[in-house]
Amino acid sequence: MSTLTPEMESLKARLKATWMAGDYGYFARYLEPGALAFLERLSIAPGTRLLDVGCGAGQIAIPAARAGVRVTGVDIALNSVEQARTRAQAEGLDVRFDEGDAEMLAFEDGAFDLVVSLIGAMFAPRPERVAAELVRVCRPAGRIVMANWTAEGFVGQMFKTIGKHVPPPPLMPSPLLWGNEATVRERLRDGVAQLQLSKRLYPFDYPFAPSEVVEFYRTYYGPTNRAFATLDAAGQTALRSDLEHLWAQNNRATDGTTRYDAEYLEVVAIRATAD
């Protein structure tokens, strides 16, 4: 395993702090319908060994465990891991949640039947390592499934809007490249026998107006929270204005609430079997 450069070590520390900011467990409550729809399409049989990479507060790990799946979840944000553990313990579920890095998964080769990342591993700074690790810990003929925001979709546009005010780190390729079909085919070229890519829509439904949604993200969603924190008062006002405009422009609700669908790329790969 190669040693991290000081620059990469610093970047990874900043990314960890970003995802520990806010309160992802609370933020993710509004993401549960889309997470459950994603999970349902996986049709996971009871007893399957599942690794959830970037598990957050257990949005898919916990319902999968309820259905008898043998679940392990990892995330770089320790506070999210602790929230997931608390939820699992409250329900009496046997789920393992660990602090972990998608680029350096602490599991043996072929340890899992199914490796999943719902809007998680796409944010790691070294995508080639992520791809290799997802494949490595999946057993031969097992599945690797990802959901990744596209650059063209609403969340992609939100990140671009934030990036105009707070430039992304130069060492890190855009996470939205994980939503590009050609890029994914290149990254998952080795060790994969089959690859299926599908564009899907993730539902977002908030019982409050777009201006309140922006404040909700600023308070609870780590990347937005940290972006605002780096700006002075004028910068925060400008960012808030641009985000409110984006949300209002894309809002499909007409009753004072906020509703939209965000495009993502669903990636389903089958690990190649040994020769």
Rank of each mutant, 00 (worst) to 15 (best):
W149G: 00
E99C: 04
P175E: 07
P203T: 05
A227R: 01
G191Q: 07
R136W: 04
V166E: 12
E91G: 13
V184P: 00
T219A: 13
A227M: 11
F208L: 05
E9K: 15
L239I: 13
P46V: 09
P173S: 14
A141G: 10
A274I: 09
M172T: 05
R70A: 13
R29S: 06
A147H: 11
A238M: 03
L114H: 07
G191F: 04
V184K: 01
G73F: 01
V166Y: 03
A37P: 00
F159V: 13
S80Y: 02
D255I: 11
R41H: 14
L50F: 09
Y206S: 07
V81M: 01
A35L: 04
P175W: 01
R129L: 15
A102P: 02
P170W: 09
R87F: 11
E244R: 11
T5V: 12
A141F: 08
R271Q: 05
G73V: 02
E108L: 12
D205I: 03
A131E: 06
T258D: 11
R136T: 06
A28C: 09
A17Q: 11
F123T: 02
R189W: 08
P167W: 15
E32P: 06
L78A: 14
V166L: 09
E7H: 07
D52E: 10
Y26H: 15
L197K: 08
I60P: 00
L51R: 00
L39E: 00
E266H: 10
C138K: 03
M158P: 00
G92I: 10
L51T: 00
N180L: 09
P167Y: 14
M122D: 12
Q89V: 06
A253C: 07
C138S: 07
A35I: 02
P223Q: 04
V81I: 14
D232L: 13
Y217H: 14
L201M: 11
K16Y: 03
T273I: 09
A77G: 08
K164P: 03
V71E: 03
R136A: 05
A248S: 15
A269V: 05
P175L: 10
G156W: 00
I76V: 12
G142D: 03
D101F: 02
T254I: 08
Y202P: 00
L197D: 05
T72A: 08
H165P: 04
G100D: 02
Q194T: 15
A151W: 04
D101G: 04
R41S: 13
E244C: 10
A45V: 12
Y30R: 07
A151M: 12
A229I: 11
A147W: 05
F38L: 09
L176M: 15
P168R: 12
L201I: 05
A28P: 00
F123K: 02
M8G: 03
Q236A: 08
L239M: 12
T230F: 08
C138R: 02
L42N: 04
L42Y: 03
G56V: 10
S211V: 14
L201S: 06
M172G: 07
V268F: 05
S117Q: 10
L78S: 06
R70I: 10
H245T: 15
V135Q: 04
A131V: 07
A274K: 05
E186W: 11
G222F: 06
Q157G: 15
F204L: 13
T3W: 09
L176S: 03
P125H: 05
G179R: 03
Y221Q: 09
R126Q: 13
R139N: 06
F27Q: 02
D190R: 08
G191W: 03
G256I: 08
A57L: 06
